[in-house]
């Protein structure tokens, strides 16, 4: 009985390793061909002047020099992209949490409300951008029509250097339901005996929120923050469709500038330098967030974690 079983296990383990490598090979090939190699290649290309027609010409660090010191647009577009993200992400988290908390109060019609709030989160791209371009129209748009009911004369949102970024923040707030669904699930998983114990100890509503709810949700919020940064920094379609970077470059988000350099001006070297700076910027932002995590993200003692 023992002998055949042992022989079986040996071949099983060897076979397992072969099968495992066979099964990860598509991803591994994709990683090497479409991620690792292009990463290195774009760094190399960034040291060359190359318009795809004539042969590449080595220019050293000239593109980085231009990017940081002589061309004002890359740092301007990076700045407005970061400002947009810093406004958009916290607002989406706060509103998403607030709606989730309201939905988590034993109300009737939870499924209906959840569907309504979640619906816009599935929509994105050109159709949504065109819809919001129309909503922001200064004379005939929905937003200013609604504001007029309250006696407010709204600005020419997409035509104003001041209001164009707030307009994009408002538009992104429409899909607040994406995060809300996740927070709601997190709230429903918090054991109720925690609240009952707190209530017995005389904790008021605010104390329960700040001492129980938010700490218990902090890993979820942290994950939303990280994905939020990566997602918001990549804003492109909306500005391409709605403003084309205007007015006066006030909504020239970073990827729009990169796109223009690469695929309209065919400056492959300069665009590659822009891509690398973008990569480092996003990486830095995420690393800063990870560094703050230990001060506010609460992980339960590693108990039921392992399967």
């Amino acid at each position: 009985m023992t002998l055949p079983l042992r022989r079986f296990r040996l071949t099983w383990q060897q076979g397992e390793v072969v099968l495992a490598w066979a099964m990860v090979s598509p991803w591994l090939a994709g990683f090497l061909l479409l991620t690792a190699f292009p990463m290195v290649a774009s760094l190399v290309i960034s040291f060359f002047e190359w318009n795809l027609l004539s042969p590449p010409e080595f220019v050293g660090l000239a593109h980085y020099n231009k990017l940081f010191f002589s061309d004002p647009l890359p740092m301007h577009s990076l700045k407005i992209t970061v400002i947009f993200s810093l406004a958009s992400i916290p607002l989406n988290i706060v509103f998403g949490l607030a709606i989730a908390m309201l939905l988590n109060t034993n109300i009737r019609g939870l499924a209906v409300f959840r569907t309504i709030y979640y619906l816009p989160a599935i929509l994105s791209g050109v159709a949504v951008a065109i819809l919001w371009q129309w909503i922001f129209s200064s004379d005939f748009g929905l937003l200013n029509t609604a504001l007029r009911i309250f006696g407010i004369e709204g600005p020419a949102w997409l035509g104003s250097k001041v209001w164009v970024l707030p307009a994009f923040v408002i538009m992104r707030l429409w899909s607040v339901g994406g995060g809300m669904v996740i927070y709601l699930a997190g709230l429903q998983a918090i054991p109720t005996d925690l609240y009952e114990a707190a209530e017995i100890d005389g904790a008021n509503w605010w104390q329960r929120i700040f001492r129980i709810t938010l700490p218990m949700l902090s890993p979820t919020i942290f994950f939303q923050l990280i994905t939020g940064v990566i997602f918001s920094m990549q804003i492109f379609t909306e500005t391409f469709i709605m403003t084309d970077g205007g007015p006066a470059n006030a909504s020239l988000f970073y990827l729009l500038y990169l796109y223009r350099q690469a695929f309209q001006n065919f400056k492959m070297g300069y665009a590659s330098a822009l891509a690398w700076v973008f990569f480092v910027a996003v990486l830095l932002l995420t690393l800063i967030l990870f560094a703050t995590a230990r001060f506010w993200v609460y992980y339960e003692a590693e108990s039921a974690e392992d399967n």
């Binding site: 991803w27 292009p38 990569f279």
Partner: peptide, 24 residues
């Protein structure tokens, strides 16, 4: 080890590799 690489690529904005990908 390889799974950490998967997680890292999840965080990578795809536009960073776009130009070489276009050239390929």
């Amino acid at each position: 080890t390889l799974f950490i690489v998967v997680l890292a690529t999840m965080m990578l904005p795809r536009q960073v590799t776009l130009i070489p990908e276009f050239l390929i």
